[in-house]
Each structure stands twice: as C-alpha cells, then as structure tokens.
Amino acid sequence: MTLEAILFDVDGTLADTEGLGHHPAYNQAFDSLGVPFRWDRDLYRTLLQQPGGRERIRHYLDAYDPELGPESAAVARDPDEWIAKVHRLKSDFFRDRVAAGQIPLRAGVARLICEARDAGIRMAIVSNASRRTLDPVLEHSLRPELRSAIEVIASGEEVMHKKPHPMLYQLALKRLGLKPSQCVAVEDSAMGLAAARAADLAALVTINEDTRDQNFAGAGMVVSSLGEPGDPVWVYRGDIGDARWVTPKVLANLLAQSQSG
C-alpha cells in the first residue's frame, strides 16, 4: 500500500503543549479561583493518564480529595459545573500562552508537514482535545501554510470514547475515505499508541519528557523527535536507514514494514 495520509496527534506531538501550556494553565486557573493547591510536574504526569482535561480534574477530585477552600461549596453543589468552569479558565489561559508564542512546534514538525504536502500526502489532526483547545494551536503555532495542509480534524468532543479507544482514529479515517493500511499515525504517548493500534494503524512515537518512560510495545518506530538539520533523530525502536530525520519516505517504509510483518 502507498502512504496516503499522516494522522498527527497534537498535545506533546506537534508541540510541547503539556509542559509549556496546559500544565501551567491549570495552575493559573486554580490560582484565579483561590484554591489552596497546585499540580506539580510529577503529579501532572500521573494525571496525563486520564483521557482529557475534564477527566483529569474529576479524577483529581475523586482520587486526591484536595482541600478546596472558597470553592468547596460550589463543588459540593454541582461538581460537573465546577469542573467545566475550571476547564474553561484553563483553556483561556492556554490560549493566551499560545497566542504569546510560548508554545512553538517541536523539531521537525513544520519540515515534515511541508515535505508531506509537497509529496501529495494528505494530513489529519486526531486529538482528545476539544476544538476550543486545538484552535489556538492551529492558529498560532502552525503557520497559515501549514494549517492549510491539514485536511481533516477529529477532536475529542466529537466522539463518545476518547483515546485509548480507537474511535477518534476511526472518525478521521472515515472523513479521509481511507483504510488503516494507507495511513501512519504519529503519537507521543502510550495512550495514543494504543488508540492507533486498536484502529489497525501503523504508528510512530516521538517521545517527550512526559512520556519517555512509557511502554511503547507495538510501535513500529520510536524516536526522540521528528528531527531536522541541526537536530538529528535518536532512534529507540525501528530503522530509518541512512536518513537523519523522519521523512515521508521513512514513514512509507514504516507502513510497508507493518503490512509485511
């Protein structure tokens, strides 16, 4: 099968949105509400195992039973509404960070999108995040010419089950009109990898500080980044041949290997 499309995750894959954006934005939201707790980086990495922002907040309330200070009555009265309020505040602070240029693309992302576009390979975004969260990244972190290359977006609020369920990938494939055997998923986490593999997709994982210790069994390739001149790739699983960074040809070879394996 020919490589017809690349399906990109966003958070942690296109940009370090977790470490540079979402994590500090959550703490800004908590600060604005006056609650007496903050999430440190180790706790946040643990909470990332939950498949979405609202799920993360709910799990924290249920599992950690934090002191809520002036927000105690509001949480007791309507926890769903309080969770939604925190998530709205977090999204606003996150948008501010993206708009201020604080969340650049990871190494090799712009290069690979341009190379794939020039090669006639279609591209999609497949993310647990809501459009409210995705749109600032697409508007500010991607240049207009990169954004225009993205044909399909499948976002978390559109499905009943988020990653690690395959539903988001299945939605993207349906919109593209393609089969799993024609596409490669690019992810950064074990959760995203599980979703891609459950959708029968070949997958490349580009690790980051929050995910490097996760289990990536089932990935066709695991790399330090997509890489670019001056920032070559470290390959932890798979083979990129004589390439120094991930190219459309590398992904096409990965797809071919997954079909023959």
Rank of each mutant, 00 (worst) to 15 (best):
A25P: 02
Y169E: 11
V250A: 04
E145A: 07
A29H: 05
K179A: 14
T13D: 06
V205H: 03
I83D: 04
E71L: 11
Q102T: 05
M123D: 02
V35Y: 02
L3N: 01
D92Q: 14
R95H: 15
L3F: 00
G101W: 01
A63E: 15
V250Y: 00
A190Y: 08
L168E: 05
G156F: 02
G52P: 01
V250L: 02
I57D: 10
R41L: 14
R131Y: 01
E187T: 10
K85A: 13
L61P: 07
E139W: 02
T46C: 01
K90E: 02
D188E: 06
K174D: 15
G218S: 10
A199K: 08
A15R: 02
A84T: 10
M167Y: 08
R97L: 14
L48G: 05
F8A: 02
S260F: 12
R244G: 01
H59R: 11
C114L: 15
G53K: 01
R117N: 10
M191I: 15
G220V: 12
R212C: 11
A252Q: 14
P144A: 13
D92L: 12
I83Q: 07
G230R: 09
V246L: 06
S155M: 08
W39T: 05
A15Y: 00
S260V: 15
K162D: 01
